[in-house]
Amino acid sequence: MAELLHGEDPEPSDRYPAGPLFVPVRPGPSRCATRLFRTPLGGRTAVGFTSEHRLTATLGAHQGWIRLAEPALRALTAPLGVTTVTVNPQFAAPAPAPVRSPLPEPAPAPALRIG
């Protein structure tokens, strides 16, 4: 059996993808901030996509993004304790709904008079 060349390998042996990633961002005090996500087990992860199409298919057309190489993304998130980078996730849960103000406390029951 012929050994597959690196370019023909459907799952490349390299740990890092080639080329810059499309990284989702949100507005922040310094123009934009990298969005962080949770893995299915609850760990924090940075996310990058290999194409704009993959990003918009997963997160929607209105999601902002910047181009970053994976080492740069890791360098940005490492000070936050985030050491995992997920490339091309297939699913992202919607953002949680804003917390509504709690319902007003019920009025205390009137005191009973005995006697």
Rank of each mutant, 00 (worst) to 15 (best):
A57W: 02
L80K: 15
L5S: 14
R38P: 01
P17Y: 07
G28F: 09
L55P: 00
P12D: 11
R35Y: 09
W65P: 09
F22D: 01
A92T: 13
P12T: 03
A78V: 04
A75E: 14
T34K: 09
G43D: 08
P98Y: 03
L103H: 03
V23I: 10
A93Y: 12
P40I: 05
T83I: 09
C32A: 10
H62P: 04
V99N: 13
P102N: 01
L41F: 00
G60K: 06
R15Y: 14
G115E: 13
E70D: 05
P89G: 00
S13W: 10
P27F: 05
H6R: 11
S30Y: 04
T34I: 15
P10K: 08
P10N: 10
H62Q: 11
T45I: 05
T34H: 15
R26Q: 09
P40S: 12
A109R: 05
L59I: 12
R26Y: 09
P12H: 08
G64V: 09
R31Q: 14
E105H: 06
A109M: 01
G28E: 01
G115S: 06
P17C: 02
L41E: 13
R35S: 10
F22C: 10
R113T: 03
L112S: 08
S13G: 12
L55F: 03
Q90I: 07
G81C: 13
L5T: 12
G43L: 00
L36P: 04
A69D: 15
E8R: 12
P102A: 03
G19Q: 01
T86I: 04
L68F: 15
A109Y: 01
T77R: 02
C32S: 11
A107I: 11
A18L: 12
P89I: 09
D9V: 08
V47Q: 11
P89K: 01
L5M: 11
V47C: 06
G19L: 07
D14A: 14
G28A: 00
L76A: 06
Y16V: 08
R44T: 07
T39Q: 12
L103R: 08
T58Y: 07
P89Y: 04
S51Y: 11
P40C: 10
R113Y: 11
T77Y: 01
A18P: 02
P29Q: 07
H62N: 12
R54I: 13
V82Y: 14
V23R: 05
W65A: 14
T50D: 14
P27Q: 04
T84K: 15
G60F: 06
V23A: 07
P79I: 07
G81I: 14
D9Y: 12
I114V: 11
V23S: 06
A75P: 03
V85S: 06
E105V: 06
T50H: 14
S30W: 02
R44V: 03
E105A: 10
A69F: 15
L41S: 12
G43H: 04
R44S: 04
S51L: 10
A18S: 15
F91L: 02
P102M: 01
L41H: 09
A109P: 00
P89S: 06
H62K: 11
P106D: 01
R44P: 00
P110N: 02
P12V: 04
P98R: 10
G48Q: 03
A111R: 13
P102R: 05
L41W: 04
V87W: 02
R38D: 08
F91N: 03
A2N: 13
M1W: 04
G81S: 10
P24D: 09
P12N: 02
V87D: 06
P89W: 05
C32I: 03
R26C: 09
L76Q: 05
T56N: 02
P29R: 13
